[in-house]
Simulated assay, not measured.
Amino acid sequence: MFGFGRRPIQKLDFIVAGAQKSGTTALNYYLKRHPQIALPIKKELHFFDNDELFAGGNVSYEPLQEMFRPARVGSIAGENTPIYLYWRPALPRIRDYNPAMKFIVILRNPIERAFSQWNMQRTRRIEPFDFLDAVGAEPGRIAASAPKQVRKFSYVDRGRYAEQLERAFRLFPREQFLIVKYEAFRARQRETVEAVFRFLNLSPPRFRAVEAHDIPYARKIRDEERAAVWEILQSDIGRLETLLGWDCSDWR
Rank of each mutant, 00 (worst) to 15 (best):
S154I: 01
G23C: 05
I221T: 02
N58T: 13
A146C: 01
R160C: 11
V196F: 02
T25L: 02
K32H: 07
F153K: 03
R33D: 13
D214L: 09
E138L: 02
L107E: 10
G57Q: 07
R113M: 15
I76W: 09
A55V: 12
R206A: 08
P99G: 08
G140M: 04
G18F: 00
P8H: 11
A162M: 05
F129K: 13
K148D: 15
I37A: 00
S75T: 12
A19E: 08
E79A: 00
E62L: 15
S145N: 12
W251T: 07
S249I: 08
R226C: 03
L240F: 03
N58K: 15
V210T: 10
I83Q: 11
P205Y: 06
A71R: 14
E44C: 04
F199E: 02
V193S: 00
I106T: 10
V180N: 02
R167P: 05
W251R: 10
G140K: 06
A209M: 03
R158Y: 02
Y29C: 02
A77G: 09
S145V: 01
A90S: 14
D49R: 03
L200I: 02
M120H: 15
R186V: 14
F14Y: 03
A209I: 03
R160H: 12
L202W: 00
P216Q: 10
G159R: 02
P35F: 08
L27H: 07
S235Q: 10
S145M: 12
I94E: 11
R222V: 07
E191F: 05
I94S: 12
A212R: 01
I179M: 05
Y61Q: 09
Q234L: 04
I106F: 14
R7Q: 14
L12Q: 03
R69L: 15
A77P: 07
E231C: 00
P99Y: 14
A227T: 00
I215H: 12
A55W: 06
I221L: 08
V135K: 00
N50Y: 13
S203C: 05
D96C: 12
T25N: 06
S116P: 11
D236E: 08
E112H: 14
P82W: 07
F169I: 02
L233S: 06
L233I: 09
P173Y: 01
R198F: 03
R188S: 12
M67G: 04
L178A: 02
V196T: 10
A218Y: 03
G74H: 10
R93A: 08
P92W: 04
E52Y: 09
L64E: 03
P128A: 06
F54C: 10
I111M: 11
K42M: 09
N58I: 12
G23P: 06
H213A: 13
S116I: 11
F129A: 13
R72H: 13
I237R: 01
V210I: 09
T81Y: 00
N98M: 10
L178I: 01
P40I: 04
E191D: 13
T25G: 04
